[in-house]
Simulated scan of single mutants.
Amino acid sequence: MPSYTCSTCEREFSHCASLQNHVKVHDNAVVDRALQKISEER
């Protein structure tokens, strides 16, 4: 059975769709950090 690994946190998933859904967590974290930094600068 193939395994799909997240390149950001190395977590493994048995389904490609599960990995694709998981990757969104990292995208949201990056956006949240950027927004927080911008708000701190103001």
Rank of each mutant, 00 (worst) to 15 (best):
Y4L: 00
V23W: 00
T8P: 01
L19D: 02
S7D: 12
A34G: 15
S7V: 03
R42Y: 15
S3H: 04
S39Q: 14
Y4C: 00
Y4P: 00
F13R: 02
T8Y: 08
E12G: 03
N28G: 11
A17F: 01
I38S: 11
L35P: 08
H22T: 02
Q36W: 08
C16R: 15
Q20E: 02
S7F: 01
V31Q: 14
C6K: 00
V31F: 10
C6I: 01
N28T: 10
E40Q: 14
E40I: 11
L35F: 12
Q36I: 11
P2D: 07
K24P: 01
A34C: 15
A17E: 08
C9P: 05
V23F: 00
L35Y: 12
C6E: 01
E12C: 06
E10G: 09
V31T: 14
P2V: 10
A34K: 14
H15N: 11
S3K: 06
H15R: 15
L35H: 12
A34Y: 15
A17L: 04
R33V: 13
A29N: 09
V30F: 07
D27L: 03
L35M: 14
E12Y: 01
D32V: 03
R42A: 15
S39V: 13
R11I: 00
N28L: 13
D27N: 08
D27H: 02
H26T: 08
K24H: 09
D32Q: 09
D32M: 06
P2R: 04
V25F: 08
V30T: 10
C16F: 06
E10A: 11
H26S: 10
Q20F: 07
N21L: 01
E12H: 05
V31K: 14
